[in-house]
Nucleic acid binder design. Structure first.
Lengths: 252, 252
DNA sequence: CAGTGGTCTAGACCACAAG
DNA sequence: TTGTGGTCTAGACCACTGA
């Protein structure tokens, strides 16, 4: 007898599983609904738990599932469109800025950042820690590096409160005005501290957005390294119009 | 006796391994160098191969390693900065366009795209398949959807060659001029066909760039869905100046 | 406490590239 | 044919959540 399947491409088990479960999510599950636990699912599909997990990992990477230790696996809502650059997010600290300052210290930045800033390798700069919320969820953490030269009027910083220090630096920065910005997006994995802020485990996939802000004369006035949750975020650029992702379509 | 380690955070094995290997890559390996195979590495570190692999996966996700079946694991070159939008990549088909058309058919687009285009759910549109190379490597595959209404002068398309058809559509599109564009970036995993084009396995992490091109009157004239290799690419936006990533710093 | 997902093991076999 | 990374298994234990 021939195989009942046509001689198609050899498909791995977890890939096929991912497809099957993905289709089931579209047709049989609502957002927020809890899936059976991994052991049951694995048994139901007749595979080892590790294989089932490989499929779930893929679906989580694509933002279709959300897994939380001690709780379970739920159907994720569509990714939220998070505006990056443009509208209300141009110059750090401008009105409507989506970022919420959390702290400000003076530190020697990583060599990467120092090079972008054009500061010396052992020169301390202001480091603002900021976080960004959306619909009540943390979506991004970032570090904003501001060289002392960019905010010359801050002679004596003896403000005890970090948040206040942050606001002062931002205000100074805002007074400067700016000429443009530069942006790069790449895939990364959450460091331990970012992971904590983003309510994820270390190593979770994140979108790393590095922005250079140019002051007058083309000098780099500040550099921001933002870490967005890759599972829940879709970064949008230019244009204020929101548009819908595949998931939002499915949900409606 | 107390533990010789300070009571630090409990760190998983693979995470620690990732850190150790990552540091070794910085100090003891050159770009392109081949690492020992997974079985040897696992034995050397006294862990199961699966655990070792978990660490390597992280490093590959961060673009620091490249693994190829049947070949081995090599130290990856720094991610290449790939310009998206702006300079020479504005309107599809404009001079200096980095995309190379490969084919053109007429198909009914996925519902997601149809909605973005504002076409009917069962209306066929031109589908241009394009690919993008960089330094001799494929970095992205994309599908450009062009509604028939956007290129009205193509009454009878009986051109046999797909590439030629693609060029004709692009030329028509170019004659229209455009008013702006809209972009979104999110994490995805490579479909089987994209994976083949990008020389990766299915499910490989990719950066999904969805672009809406607006014609005169704010109408959506075309939609492009581009799939960039997340391991080798850093997407850059705005500003023609290239800047260096952490890895480029390490390499220099 | 019971139940979840996260980590880890020690094996096996498969698909692929290159000699 | 050999050696590589990729897949898969069946089990164990851990870390965390919430009742």
């Amino acid at each position: 007898m021939g195989t009942t399947q046509l001689e198609t491409a050899p498909e791995t088990k977890y890939w096929h599983l991912k497809t099957v479960i993905g289709e089931a999510l579209d047709s049989e599950f609502a957002v927020g609904e809890i899936l059976p636990n991994e052991r049951d699912l694995a048994a139901r599909f007749g595979v080892a738990r590790a294989t089932l997990r490989q499929a779930l990992e893929q679906l989580e990477l694509e933002g279709r599932l959300q897994r939380r230790r001690g709780v379970g696996t739920t159907v994720a809502p569509p990714r939220m469109g998070v505006a990056v650059g443009a509208a209300g997010n141009g110059w750090p600290g401008s009105s409507g800025d989506a970022w919420q300052p959390a702290d400000c210290t003076q530190e020697i930045p990583p060599a990467v950042v120092a090079e972008l800033l054009g500061t010396g390798a052992d020169e301390a700069v202001h480091v603002l820690r900021r976080s960004r919320m959306y619909s009540g969820q943390p979506v991004a953490a970032d570090l904003l590096y501001v060289p002392a030269a960019s905010v010359p009027d801050l002679s004596a910083i003896d403000i005890p409160d970090g948040v206040t220090r942050a606001r002062v630096v931002l205000r100074e920065l805002q007074l400067l005005g700016f000429e443009g910005e530069d942006r790069a997006v790449e895939l990364g994995s959450a460091r331990a501290d970012d992971a904590r802020q983003l309510d994820r485990l270390p190593g979770a996939p994140v979108l790393l957005v590095t922005t250079r802000y140019f002051g007058h004369g083309g000098r780099t006035a500040a550099v921001s390294v933002a870490t967005y949750r890759a599972d829940t975020c879709r970064l949008t650029f230019g244009g204020d119009v929101e548009f819908h992702s595949e998931q939002e379509r499915r949900a409606s």
